[in-house]
Simulated assay, not measured.
Amino acid sequence: MKVAVLIPCYNESKTIAKVIRDFKAVLPEADIYVYDNNSKDGTDEIARAEGAIVRYEYRQGKGNVIRSMFRDIDADCYLMVDGDDTYPAEFAPQMVDLVVNKNADMVVGDRLSSTYFTENKRPFHNLGNVLVRRLVNQFFKGDVVDIMTGYRAFGPLFVKSFPVLSKGFEIETEMTIHALDKNLRLENLPVTYRDRPEGSESKLNTYSDGFKVLKTIFRLYKDYKPLPFFGLLALVMLLLAAVLFVPVFMEYLSTGLVLRFPTLIVSGVAGILAMLLLICGLILDTVVKKDRQNFELQLNVFSMLGRMKNEK
């Protein structure tokens, strides 16, 4: 069994050595990969000196790093953790066990059920995590406790079937939504969280990255749930058409005249737009269902190839 510990890094020289040593201690059989994302503080040299396999991703952004990791590395279990020493290594064996022996496709290291809100000193980060959790679970009918955690374990089925589209920190949200939409097996595992040590700075911008996360949620809702998305827009346009049309129609009934032609025209346009939006939703919903069927067939092929590889 091959376990790969994946550590995306950008200027983590103060903590990367400890992270590598901690995960070596609890997973001595694992290969530890550090992907350096244009660090300028010698993170790569420190990681290499600690015995990690160091590779480079020159396109800036965590999403770009994970794209390269997932494409380059073959393993039976992938454990992803940030290089900032905020996630204790002691939970790693349990996460690996859920993937290897319990067939979980993704294990989410849940910070929010333990120490996150007391350790994290940035109130807007706390609020953002709660908001994102509610939106994702509401839109995609999930029960994921921590959407944006950087501590996760994956099976090969998830890693090799996940289309990475995001470039930055919104990648965690995208991974969660992909697992929910494709009905992959997802497990929540409560883990403790500790704030960054003094001198280590977060690369996450509360406002700009938070906006990107929210934008990603709504984009993926449109892509994965087109009928509810366009159906809601169609309903809004239909209500607008009705609000504009009813007074004109009541006036016509009482006087026999149509005195507000511009209002009637706008009402008609809004009604036509409502029908077009609903038709778009129906067509795209058919396309999405077909894509899901193709995805399931691809998973079957991948599973068959995996069994053949293990038999050899």
Rank of each mutant, 00 (worst) to 15 (best):
E45I: 13
A47P: 04
R48T: 14
A49L: 13
E50D: 13
E50R: 09
G51A: 02
G51I: 08
G51T: 02
A52N: 02
I53G: 05
I53D: 15
V54A: 02
R55L: 14
Y56I: 11
Y58E: 11
R59G: 08
Q60G: 13
Q60D: 04
G61K: 06
G61E: 13
K62I: 10
K62C: 10
G63I: 06
G63F: 14
N64C: 06
N64R: 00
N64S: 03
N64A: 01
R67M: 12
R67D: 11
R67W: 06
M69R: 02
M69D: 06
F70T: 12
D72M: 10
D72E: 10
I73F: 13
I73V: 13
I73P: 09
I73Q: 12
A75H: 12
A75C: 02
D76W: 05
D76S: 00
Y78Q: 08
Y78P: 00
M80K: 14
D82G: 15
D85S: 09
D85L: 03
D85I: 05
T86N: 07
T86L: 03
Y87K: 11
P88L: 07
P88S: 13
P88A: 08
P88K: 08
E90Q: 15
E90D: 04
E90S: 12
F91A: 11
F91E: 09
A92Q: 07
P93A: 09
P93M: 07
P93L: 03
Q94W: 02
Q94F: 04
Q94A: 02
Q94R: 15
M95L: 08
V96I: 05
D97M: 01
D97E: 05
L98K: 06
L98I: 10
V100I: 08
N101C: 02
K102E: 06
N103P: 01
N103C: 01
N103W: 01
A104R: 00
D105F: 00
D105N: 05
M106Q: 05
M106I: 12
V107W: 04
V107A: 04
V108R: 04
V108Y: 02
D110Y: 02
D110S: 01
R111N: 13
S113Q: 12
S113L: 01
T115Q: 09
T115G: 11
Y116V: 15
F117V: 08
F117T: 14
T118F: 04
T118L: 03
E119H: 04
R122P: 04
P123Y: 08
F124D: 15
N126M: 11
N126P: 09
L127F: 13
G128V: 10
N129M: 12
V130L: 12
L131H: 14
L131Y: 07
R133G: 10
R134K: 15
R134C: 15
R134P: 02
N137K: 06
N137W: 02
N137V: 07
N137T: 05
N137Q: 07
N137S: 00
